[in-house]
Simulated assay, not measured.
Amino acid sequence: MAKNIHPDQRYIIGLINNDTAIINDIYKRCAGKVRSWITFNNGSDDDAADIFQESLMDIYRQAKYKSLELTCPFEPYILLICKRKWLNAIKKRSVLPVTNSEEDLLLIGEDTFANADYLESQEQQSKLFYEAFEKLGDRCKEIISWSMKGEAQEKVAEALGVTYGYLRKKKSECMASLVKIVQSTKTEF
């Protein structure tokens, strides 16, 4: 059975040919997401830059020497590679010994492309959430943003200059509005 080569194969070809426009596009589309994910997961901007560069080099080597043919979108593919590289880097830095449990051994043969598809669907869901979030009023955006930082609600209420009871009620209303917007957007497609 022939593989269906994804149109994003152009990124692989661009890497092999050192096409500046394609490489700039890869950085523009993907580097910020990798940086956000790595810094959110205890890394620095330098860590993110290193991981991204190493991942691009790995893809380049796979393409040049092993004829990599992309059957999924490029962006989730590189994000998955970066994520795995960063998780491995964290394990290497850890002072605790790293042991493989049976569960870890089962994951070794995971289908990379299924993971890439999963990442793409996660990205689409995030995009849908952020689009819905932008449609909320300023006060709701502020309350939800503060709440997502993981602060205790008492501290959030104090920072926003409202009572704890008001914050809980307003947050509930804002979340309901957000869910409603997301659901109405989903039915449009």
Rank of each mutant, 00 (worst) to 15 (best):
S177F: 08
A89Q: 04
C174V: 13
K28I: 12
L128P: 04
E131V: 07
G32R: 07
R93E: 07
D8E: 11
I144R: 11
F74H: 12
S184I: 08
C30S: 12
I38H: 09
K155A: 15
L79F: 03
I22C: 03
I12E: 01
P76V: 07
K186D: 05
Q124H: 08
V98F: 01
P76F: 09
L119T: 15
S184C: 06
T185A: 10
S184H: 12
L96P: 03
Q122W: 11
G137A: 07
E134L: 00
Q183G: 04
N18S: 09
L107M: 10
T99E: 12
K127F: 09
S172W: 09
K92E: 07
L106Y: 14
Y166F: 11
L106I: 12
I26W: 04
E173I: 10
T71W: 03
D58M: 07
T163F: 11
F129A: 00
H6Q: 09
D104Y: 15
T99Y: 12
L80D: 08
L136P: 02
W86H: 05
L105M: 13
M175S: 06
D25K: 13
S184P: 04
Y11P: 11
I59L: 05
F129Y: 01
R61N: 03
C174T: 13
V98G: 00
S145A: 13
C82V: 00
S94D: 03
N42A: 13
A2I: 15
S67P: 06
E54W: 02
K83R: 13
Q125S: 12
V179D: 11
P97C: 05
I181V: 14
S36D: 10
Y164A: 04
A49P: 00
E142C: 14
P73V: 13
G150M: 02
E154G: 12
I16L: 05
A157N: 06
K180D: 05
V98L: 02
E54C: 02
D50E: 14
Q183M: 10
V98C: 01
D58G: 06
L96T: 09
K33E: 05
G161M: 02
L79E: 06
L68P: 06
K64A: 14
N41K: 13
L80I: 08
D111W: 10
S94T: 01
E188P: 00
W146F: 14
K155H: 15
M148D: 06
K171R: 05
L79R: 03
I59A: 06
D111N: 15
R93H: 04
R10T: 03
E173A: 01
V156N: 01
R29Y: 05
V179T: 13
E151Q: 04
D50I: 11
A49E: 00
D25V: 08
A89I: 01
F52N: 08
E69D: 07
K66L: 14
A132I: 01
I181S: 12
I38Q: 10
L56Y: 10
E75L: 15
K85H: 08
R35M: 06
A176F: 02
T20Y: 08
S55I: 06
K171I: 00
E75C: 15
I12H: 05
E69M: 10
I26D: 05
K85E: 07
R168M: 01
K64Q: 13
N4Y: 09
F74Q: 09
L56V: 10
Y11N: 09
K149F: 06
E134G: 00
